[in-house]
């Protein structure tokens, strides 16, 4: 087996395994750390798909940012909450019906799609092409991203502010 294929299976196993561990873990801190391995595995899969910028974004934003926020969320909640996390299954019957349908649909799509397989040349990094596209063809979405980030700043600050009610 080729090395990249071996690496693909290793990182897929890491991603899926830690995702399963995260879902079934009773300890919320352990779940957060399992999520870290899941996100890192996804970043490695991006690398194997030659998407270097997306991989770097995945590590910087998801592992370095969002995971930290989740851990902050754990630490900000009242203490003792982390000790006995109660997870339980509710609505078992409707959930199993919906999940069976979704799984059947996905398996159907997986089996009926013709997957084009072709040898492609290894691209020399994607960032330069991405920059040209971002600044020429997609300049408006790029600037709208700026507006979105501005709205995100203001919204986050508004939600985090203590609102004093009149007495």
């Amino acid at each position: 087996m080729e090395l990249t294929t071996l690496l693909f299976y290793f990182f897929s196993l890491l991603t899926i395994g830690s995702a399963i561990f995260m879902v079934f873990s009773k300890n919320i801190v352990h779940a957060a750390f399992a999520l870290m391995f899941t996100l890192l595995g996804v970043a490695a899969l991006y690398v194997l798909l030659f998407a270097d910028f997306i991989a770097a974004t995945q590590i910087l934003v998801y592992v370095g940012g969002i995971l930290i926020l989740i851990l902050f969320g754990v630490m900000l909640t009242t203490k003792g909450f982390t000790d006995n996390l109660k997870t339980l299954t509710t609505n078992l019957r409707p959930v199993s019906v919906v999940m069976t349908l979704v799984a059947a649909g996905m398996i159907y799509v997986l089996l009926t799609t013709t997957w084009p397989v072709a040898e492609i040349a290894e691209p020399e990094g994607t960032i330069t092409g991405l920059g040209t596209l971002l600044l020429k063809e997609y300049i408006l979405p790029f600037q709208v991203t700026g507006v979105l980030l501005l709205v995100a700043i203001i919204g986050a600050l508004l939600m985090a502010t203590k609102v004093k009610h009149q007495q």
Partner: peptide, 29 residues
């Protein structure tokens, strides 16, 4: 229980990090 000010700092860090990330493709071209 940590002070929730850390959370605001974390949120702001995330937003400015996305800004910095988008600077990289720009810097290449």
């Amino acid at each position: 229980q940590f002070n929730n000010r850390f959370y605001i700092i974390g949120l702001m860090f995330l937003i400015f990090e996305v800004e910095i990330l988008l600077l990289f493709p720009w810097a290449m071209v």
